[in-house]
């Protein structure tokens, strides 16, 4: 018995059928829609693209953007690359972790391309720059 999710997956796969090398675009869509790429999805995608399940698993596990399990908490991506380090992001990390607690997940990211205006962070597709401790704290508290 196929469920709604499997049908939706088929639709996503079909929508990329005319692309060359469609795996990454498919995985992006699946990740965006279901919040993760689980075992069932891997198998279904593998079958549709005539790949082995191991090949799809290999790709999912390689890239930071894809996860096998849904993220339970909202995520704030904090840039900790060189330019943001030079602008003092490391001094903000402990405070951010404390403010986030168990409610928000602070992920490290390397570079948002806002390197003269760091420290910077990303929530969803929204970017924030020139962060200091109070601004970052406010962002973390307001994140949904």
């Amino acid at each position: 018995m196929r469920d709604a999710k499997a049908n939706r997956l088929d639709e996503i796969i079909a929508s990329h059928s005319r692309r060359e090398g469609p795996l990454l675009p498919i995985l992006h869509d699946v990740q965006a829609e279901f919040g993760c790429i689980d075992e069932a999805a891997k198998r279904q995608i593998a079958q549709a693209l005539n790949l082995s399940r191991a090949e799809v698993h290999g790709v999912v596990s390689f890239y930071h953007d894809f996860t096998a399990e849904p993220k339970a908490r909202p995520v704030l991506k904090l840039c900790r690359a060189e330019a943001c380090k030079a602008r003092g992001v490391e001094a903000l990390v402990d405070g951010a972790m404390a403010a986030a607690g168990d409610r928000v997940k602070i992920e490290t990211i390397y570079c948002l391309g806002l390197c003269s205006a760091g420290p910077s962070a990303m929530i969803g597709n929204a970017v924030h720059a020139r962060l200091d401790a109070p601004k970052l704290d406010k962002l973390i508290r307001e994140i949904a």
């Binding site: 060359e20 990454l24 890239y63």
Partner: peptide, 18 residues
């Protein structure tokens, strides 16, 4: 998909191929 190494040209090509 968040992999720095994909800026390397051959790695980028592999990524494009899925």
């Amino acid at each position: 998909a968040g992999a720095y190494v994909c800026g390397e040209e051959t790695s980028l090509l592999n990524s494009l191929e899925g």
